[in-house]
């Protein structure tokens, strides 16, 4: 079954109720041992918003977005995702992870499963969708990322760009409300970056709430509602892309932009 590119299930509900503050981070701190990685982060993201996070290496970008689905634990402050606060409570963590999809720099597909099985695993075992339904849905998402013909292959048989698109489809199969991307294109050869970015742009157009850590400034300019600049574990600057790129306020931001542009 093929879907046209313009109608996606998410786009309808997200148009209907734009929930403010679907992600709320309040005064959040994190330490690795004695090392203070994240310092007093505050961020509110509304449903359907697209946030790009950038900053120098080691500034804590990955750590920050990994806190949002509790791959990392924070020690102080609050993180509330879709009205559920992340605490030690495993049930809270599970329910947040069901709603938050994540795409990693190194894809992290399951090499022992085919592309289709990768996509269906979680819907079947976590959402308890019947296998047949899960497979049909997975095929739709694979079509959306333009690789339905690879469904029966194993990840090891695909190119990096194809693997990353499968990883995006796999996350979407859980029908998440929020998608997190941690440098999804930085492990890819230049000619594959575009195919992944195209999928992400298309996804952004469908109204998905997205937080992307990326150094693809073109992507940030065209897609982001807000750009966040982090340095030394702090949010240094936060602005719409037009302002962020043409008129950065902070000296550290200016220096960073000079280096990468």
């Amino acid at each position: 079954m093929g879907t046209t590119m313009t109608q996606h299930p998410e786009s309808k509900d997200s148009q209907a109720e734009k929930k403010p503050g679907i992600i709320r981070v309040e005064g959040m701190h994190k330490w690795y041992g004695d090392f203070h990685v994240l310092k007093d982060l505050n961020l509110a993201v509304d449903q359907g918003e697209r946030i790009v996070i950038c900053g120098p290496s080691g500034s804590g970008k990955s750590t920050f977005i990994r806190c949002i689905n509790r791959l990392e634990e924070h020690q102080q402050g609050r993180i509330i995702v879709d009205d559920v606060e992340l605490t030690d409570d495993v049930r809270h963590i599970d329910s947040v992870r069901r709603e938050v999809g994540m795409v990693f720099q190194h894809f992290n597909l399951f090499p022992h499963l085919t592309v289709l099985e990768n996509c269906c695993l979680s819907p079947i075992w976590v959402r308890k969708v019947p296998r047949r339904e899960a497979e049909a849905a997975a095929m739709e998402y694979l079509e959306r990322v333009k690789i339905p013909d690879q469904a029966t292959k194993y990840p090891g048989q695909l190119s990096g760009g194809q693997q990353q698109r499968v990883a995006i489809a796999r996350a979407l199969c859980m029908k998440p409300k929020i998608m997190l991307f941690d440098e999804p294109t930085s492990a890819l050869d230049p000619e594959m970056i575009k195919e992944v970015l195209d999928v992400m742009v298309e996804l952004a157009g469908s109204g998905m709430t997205m937080i992307c850590v990326t150094h693809e400034m073109g992507f940030a300019k065209t897609v982001a509602d807000r750009v966040i600049f982090m340095d030394g574990g702090e949010i240094v600057e936060e602005a719409p892309p037009s302002e962020f790129f043409s008129n950065p306020r902070e000296a550290r931001t200016q220096k960073f932009l000079q280096q990468i542009l």
Binding site: M102, S122, V126
Partner: peptide, 18 residues
């Protein structure tokens, strides 16, 4: 098994035993 596999499985909402 690389840490990424544990993380990807966790991020997909799979609990410990799954």
């Amino acid at each position: 098994i690389p840490r990424g596999q544990y993380e990807a499985a966790g991020a997909l909402g799979l609990g410990y035993w799954r």
